[in-house]
Simulated scan of single mutants.
Amino acid sequence: MHMENYNGETATKWNLGFPTEEENQTIDLIKMRVKYATKMLMHEVNKNRAMMSENAHQFARQYTDKDEKQKMIKENIKKKKAEQDAQHVPSAV
Rank of each mutant, 00 (worst) to 15 (best):
N55T: 02
K13G: 03
E68M: 12
S91G: 01
E75I: 04
R33P: 00
E75S: 06
N46Q: 09
A37W: 02
E22F: 04
K78E: 10
H2C: 09
N24V: 03
Q70W: 02
E23A: 10
K66W: 00
N15G: 05
K79N: 04
A56Y: 06
T38V: 11
I30H: 04
T10C: 12
T10F: 09
M52F: 15
N55V: 03
A82G: 01
D67E: 11
E68H: 10
M52H: 15
R49T: 02
E54A: 12
R49F: 02
A92R: 14
H43T: 04
E4A: 14
V89D: 03
F18T: 04
K13L: 13
R61D: 07
N48D: 15
K66H: 04
N76G: 01
M3D: 10
A86L: 02
M32C: 14
T12Q: 13
Q70L: 09
A50K: 11
N15D: 15
T12S: 13
V45M: 13
D28C: 12
K79V: 04
M51W: 08
K78C: 06
K71Q: 05
D67A: 15
M3P: 03
H57A: 11
K69D: 00
E68D: 08
I30P: 02
R49K: 12
R61Q: 10
K47L: 07
I77W: 00
V34P: 00
K13C: 08
L41V: 03
R61M: 10
E23P: 04
N46F: 08
N48M: 14
I77N: 04
N48K: 15
N7S: 07
L29A: 05
A60W: 08
V45K: 15
V45N: 15
D85S: 00
M72F: 07
Q84G: 01
I73T: 06
N15K: 15
M42P: 00
N46G: 07
K66V: 07
N48G: 03
F18V: 05
T12H: 11
K69V: 06
I73K: 06
A11P: 00
E4K: 13
I27P: 00
D67Y: 05
K66F: 05
T20Y: 09
Q87M: 01
D85L: 01
S53H: 07
M52N: 09
L41K: 12
P19E: 06
Q62F: 05
E68W: 00
T26P: 03
L29Y: 06
V89S: 02
E22Y: 05
R49Q: 06
A11W: 12
E21P: 03
Q25F: 05
N24I: 01
H57S: 10
K66N: 03
M40P: 00
Q25I: 05
E44G: 06
H2F: 11
A60Y: 10
Y36L: 12
R61T: 01
K35E: 13
L16W: 11
H57Q: 13
R49Y: 00
Q62T: 11
Q87C: 00
D28G: 02
R49A: 04
N76C: 07
N15L: 09
N15A: 12
V45S: 15
V45D: 15
K31C: 11
L29G: 03
